[in-house]
Amino acid sequence: MDDFYSPVAEFYDLVGRAHSAGEQALRERLSAMTHIHDPILDIGAGTGRTVMTIAESVPQVDILAVEPAPAMRAVLTHAVAQCLELRQRVTIIPDTVDQLQLPQRLGAVVAFGVLGHLTSSQRQGLWALLLPRLARGAPIFVELLPVEKPVVLPRMMLANETIGQRHYQATLEGEPGPDDTMLLTSCWTVSGGPCATQVIRNRSIWHTFGLEDLARESGLHAQRLTPQAGVLYV
């Protein structure tokens, strides 16, 4: 996968509130799954928000946190290093999904905000890697953009936050790209304080599909949890 995240990694957690519904649904489902004992795989762990959710919801289970973007991984490593329990439970993996070497058994998989960066063939390779390692009923939690085919995405507010004397404002917009893709553009404007105004534009590619499409291509059952999050299971 291309590294779409390092250029804006310093701002990533400022848009956390946009993900709160999916993370809350993940927390509720995991907390109810007292039978999970095998490691939980977090693909695209980012700066660690889902890692923290998993750790708080499923005590004592090991977590494999996959994050190939160096800047995002730096924030993740810092967060894990601050807590003795996390240092003992969380293994940070820098590999992309086509390079993963996994244990024979997984208790669950979390893939929030990442599957749309994979082509259909890459996703098929991922299913082939994951499914033999999951027991019947073991969940794969996913979070997707709420678009199932390429469309024009009008500019929307992504973040509007103030830290100290600096104000951080971000927008997101998108347009159809080749085949099933959308070209997404985020724009961060950072102003105020004793610094010049910064404008950072970042482009990424997202393959469009829905939760039911994932169910069909993986052969799994699907249940929607929020407009953007769902769970797949055998």
Rank of each mutant, 00 (worst) to 15 (best):
F141Q: 00
L84Q: 15
S121L: 15
H78L: 13
M52C: 07
W188T: 03
A9P: 00
V199H: 11
V66M: 09
V15S: 13
I140W: 03
L84N: 15
R49A: 15
D2C: 11
H37T: 14
R27P: 00
V147K: 12
D2G: 08
T34R: 10
D98G: 06
S218P: 05
P39I: 10
V114G: 03
A55F: 01
S31L: 13
L153V: 14
S120C: 04
I63L: 03
L118D: 06
V51S: 03
R17E: 13
A45I: 01
C195E: 13
V8R: 00
P59R: 11
R203M: 10
R87I: 10
S218W: 05
T50N: 07
H207V: 06
V114C: 07
V142Y: 09
T96C: 10
L145Q: 08
D62Q: 13
E212S: 13
E28T: 13
W188P: 00
A79V: 11
Q24G: 01
G125I: 04
V142E: 12
A196G: 14
S121N: 13
D42Q: 11
G230T: 08
L126W: 05
T162L: 10
R89N: 12
L145K: 07
D38L: 11
Y5T: 08
Y233N: 03
V199I: 12
A222P: 03
A229V: 05
L126Q: 12
A9H: 07
D62F: 10
S6H: 05
W206Y: 10
L153P: 08
E148Y: 06
H78Y: 06
E161W: 06
M156C: 06
Q101R: 15
A138G: 01
S186K: 02
Q99Y: 08
V58W: 13
C83K: 15
M52Y: 07
H37Q: 12
L131W: 02
N202G: 02
